[in-house]
Design a protein around this nucleic acid. Structure first.
Lengths: 238, 238
DNA sequence: GTATTTACTGACTCAGAGTCAATTTTTTAC
DNA sequence: GTAAAAAATTGACTCTGAGTCAGTAAATAC
């Protein structure tokens, strides 16, 4: 029915509005600074109306995190299409991840936050399921590239499973993003600065050919920046 | 003065009691389930008294996290003394880390929790400084082993800095501990199960000799379990 | 135009962190 | 030993902000 449809669209639009405002509040004031009375004021609806969309404050935060995670899926899908060796395609994931952290620096703390039990347990089931699905999707896109490498013979006979390789890469990324927050390590340099090199080393270690000593992955990354994420990097640096 | 000294000791003892009870509450009910009225009841002091020890609820949580982190320093110091190749010594850190996560499973979520801005910003400066110092200490113990490897010629001429190597290992650990919480990945196996292998692969990749294909690090880990963490593993396995 | 359903909200409750003036206990002074 | 002073402790309070709900307004159906 057309009327119900129009209503659904309006409802959906309002939800996006709420998410956008919440994102803004989270970016400027952090989780602590997110206050549902203020959010209600901003979107010009009552707080009770917010509760028609979200089951709790935490549910709002998860919705914002989900919104960011959708960008990630987009970037990783584009990385998957990158034309080149399987290792170059895998490396495009790393560039996409880094790009996200530059474009939306407050997004990463959110991923970590929503997974903490204090937040996660207060979110609605549908939203948790949706977030889980998006996370899995990202993961599976990575697996796909690793499997492709196995099929093409780019992996060695002593290489681990595709799954394990992706666990390793994801861990390196998550770990680095956690560590940049820990300010007392600043004197030891920037973990982010070494992240790309650590990806390379790890992939050398798992026997994904060619290795970083046979191939210029730094140049490959520059190619990804223009060929896969051209507009985004142009805007970022422009 | 003796009286002041006795008082200080009593104060310190009560603080430890509060931390122990808070740890227990956190282990059973999580951060959300930690309620200062209940905690005050448990330790048989008023809530106002708790505020003579801690600046906020978050400060209590940080104190508990610090308590756990002290175990970590102890374990890593013992790992440092392990008699063997530098890579075996480094690997002992990984075994210690794993042991901690088995003995105190709720400790790891705490490390992550206290670093989130929502918690961190509400903690007292002295406790933040203390926690930072302990974290740095752990980090530096790792660096020491990596430097030792460099001095002994166990690293290759193309190996990265000791700092970068430790960033990588810490990231792999932190990442794996984060990922086990993300239940939707269960079908892809247990990231913890691959953690040791990922350490090995990464260290192969950075050129730390001998590599896992020239040396049986699985056996080396068994040796660490008895020689470095004998009592703890004996108790753990019953 | 009226009845009915749906959408929205103002004014509330409630939990729990954090505070403080008053009280009790301990120490010091004589 | 006793009284004054200092330190430690707490019961009862405030205050914030998440979450609720009964009542009102708007949209739709007839």
């Amino acid at each position: 029915m057309a009327i119900a449809d129009r209503k659904r669209r309006a409802f959906e639009a309002r939800e996006q509005l709420i998410i956008a405002e919440a994102d803004d509040l989270l970016a400027t004031n952090g989780y602590l600074g997110l206050n549902l009375d203020e959010l209600a004021d901003r979107v010009e609806y009552s707080k009770a109306t917010l509760y028609h969309h979200f089951s709790s404050k935490e549910d709002v935060v998860l919705a914002v995190a989900t919104h960011h995670a959708q960008h990630r899926v987009d970037y990783f899908m584009r990385a998957c299409l990158h034309d080149g060796l399987t290792r170059e395609r895998m490396l495009a994931f790393g560039v996409g991840d880094r790009l996200l952290s530059l474009q939306f620096p407050h997004g990463f703390p959110l991923y970590q936050l929503v997974r903490s039990p204090s937040i996660w347990t207060k979110c609605s089931d549908p939203r948790r399921a949706q977030y889980g699905k998006i996370s899995s999707h990202c993961f599976e896109l990575g697996i796909k590239v690793a499997r492709d490498a196995a099929d093409r013979g780019d992996l060695s006979e002593w290489s681990p499973d595709p799954e394990q390789i992706i666990w390793g890469l994801v861990s390196l990324s998550k770990g680095a993003h956690l560590l940049v927050e820990e300010t007392e390590f600043e004197e030891h340099g920037d973990p982010m600065a070494h992240l790309f090199d650590n990806y390379d080393r790890y992939l050398d270690g798992v026997g994904w050919n060619p290795t970083s000593r046979d191939f210029d992955f730094e140049a490959a990354r520059e190619r990804v920046k223009t060929e896969v994420f051209g507009p985004e990097f142009a805007e970022l640096l422009g």
